[in-house]
Nucleic acid binder design. Structure first.
Lengths: 233, 233
DNA sequence: ACGAGTACGTACCGGCGGTATGTCGTACGG
DNA sequence: CCGTACGACATACCGCCGGTACGTACTCGT
């Protein structure tokens, strides 16, 4: 990349030498390799030699860029989360009816959870490898933060009523995590996915305030978008 | 078989020689040691030499009783689950109002989840160490099975309405698991615990049928048509 | 009493995470 | 233009740990 520039303005402006570019490239290759192997064989089942080999470097290079196996895992974690957040963020922050937006976000997140990298690295292994406390802290900046923002939106819009936003968010997050695992290991992921969305919709529906339902519009809109198969009156 | 009466009554009844008793005793010591160390330092952070040392035997003895580290972990897993099931089972199977029984079971399960052994071994590490599929299979015979039975009871009693018992159970199980972790790592576990129960009660309340409790008439009418086929599995 | 089998202990191997050290190229000051 | 300091790796090695092979003492049935 940018070979032709040959000491062009780009390098001068960014202050990045060719050396730094190479370095960043190998680092990225290591992270990519780590994501792939951690996803396929898990944290314990992946050796650092293997990760380095797949990135076409040696373990020495790996230890130059990362302080150890844990640090490499966290880099892989961040990479997966960053990729996911791009797609998810814009859906939730999109303008429009809060209820509709929330439901779209729910479906989008379940879709994200079907990705094997996200499932194994972020959901399953991360709490064990990084420790739950650190995992929770990291999640604040990623999916968990988005989820809470969505719920706060619903509460502020007077759509639903909860005892505590923090606790509700965490409970829902746990439910979504297991839902993701369930869907991924189901014989018919498509159908299971639809059933999960239906169940969750039913649950969240139970939290709706009477005055929000009485408006009627959202209810109809939600019915229409939630699925061609469930609700007819 | 059934050798002479010259032994004590205990041996005759059980048919166990003193040698077998010793063997069983060391095996139990190994399991106890494993539960303790796996709880404190996790699966990866625990060495078999350490487990054996704490049980006052060597690694050879350990490998005589268990095929490897995984098998030892599963034995520890079973031990923790068995201990938990004793307390939990009788609460859920107790006669009385289904709703009250379910709520008592919910509180009891959260109490169980506060135990560090259950939390770390069963909830956090087991899915990673045993693999999710095997973990799920094992859980069928333990806490998950109890939880589903409780929900089926509520559904059959006409208390609540769900889209699918299986999915609802799994979602609730996931929510409870994260709730447990949240409570355990909270600065004020007592208060957090109470808030969690309140939030969950609120959620389950949203699933109640109109004849069980009256609130949100319009919403109830809409949701009635959504799940007239609640029992299928 | 004596072979057989059980319940361990002992010694060792291979793999893997981590470290210490060497090497090569590039940026940089004089 | 040249030495030099430093960054980006490679190589060699160590210690721990899971797993295996084998030895041994004790018991049990005949």
């Amino acid at each position: 990349m940018s070979y032709g520039c040959e000491r062009g303005d780009n390098d001068v402006v960014t202050g990045r030498s060719r050396r730094l570019e190479y370095s960043e490239s190998t680092r990225q290759a290591l992270v990519d390799s780590a994501v792939e192997l951690f996803t396929k064989r898990g944290y314990a089942g992946t050796s650092l030699d293997e990760v380095a080999k797949r990135a076409r470097v040696t373990k020495g290079a790996l230890y130059h860029h990362f302080s150890g196996k844990q640090a490499l895992f966290e880099a892989a974690f961040d990479a997966v989360e960053a990729k996911v957040m791009g797609r998810l963020g814009e859906i939730v922050t999109a303008p429009g009816d809060p209820w509709e937006t929330a439901m779209a976000g729910l479906r989008a997140y379940i879709q994200v959870c079907l990705e094997s990298s996200y499932q194994r690295i972020v959901i399953h292994e991360a709490p064990v490898v990084m420790g739950w406390e650190r995992w929770r802290e990291a999640e604040e900046h990623f999916s968990f933060g988005v989820l809470r923002a969505a719920i706060e939106l619903l509460v502020d819009a007077g759509e639903i009523e909860v005892v505590s936003v923090e606790i509700t968010t965490r409970l829902l997050f746990g439910a979504l995590s297991t839902a993701a695992t369930m869907i991924a290991s189901a014989s018919d992921p498509k159908k299971t996915s639809a059933d999960v969305v239906a169940s969750l919709t039913r649950v969240v529906h139970g939290l709706r305030l009477p005055q929000a339902v009485r408006l009627g519009a959202e209810c109809a809109a939600e019915s229409k978008s939630s699925g061609r198969r469930s609700r007819h009156r």
